[in-house]
């Protein structure tokens, strides 16, 4: 639980190689942007995991409500025609 002396939370996203998607690595505490970037660097890229970092204040993340799970996600369950599995794969095609 956050206490009065605890620094605000930030979500950390790291990119493994240029062009790759940013992936959520975890969270850190910091009082400003510079500290957030440095703490993210020191916490999540110590073993050469990153080429770039994003930090976002946790309060800026808008999350879906677990109670809305059925409304949000179930209607997709019976629409298998949205999946690209009906195509015949050309022989030898690898990067699909």
């Amino acid at each position: 639980m956050a206490t009065e002396t605890e620094f605000p939370k930030w979500e950390v996203f790291t990119q493994i190689k240029p062009g790759a998607n940013y992936i959520h690595a975890g969270m850190i505490h910091a009082t400003d942007k510079e500290m957030a970037l440095q703490n993210a660097r020191d916490t999540y890229t110590r073993r050469g995991e990153g080429t770039s970092i994003w930090v976002v204040p946790s309060h800026a993340i808008v999350a879906s409500n677990p109670d809305d799970k059925e409304m949000f996600f179930d209607p997709a369950n019976d629409k298998i025609y949205r999946l690209p599995t009906f195509y015949v794969m050309p022989e030898g095609a690898k990067a699909i």
Binding site: F7, I28, H29, Q38, N39, D42, T43, R46
Partner: peptide, 11 residues
Amino acid sequence: PILEEDLALTN
């Protein structure tokens, strides 16, 4: 003072 700075200092 905080875990993140602990890592920074030991780094």
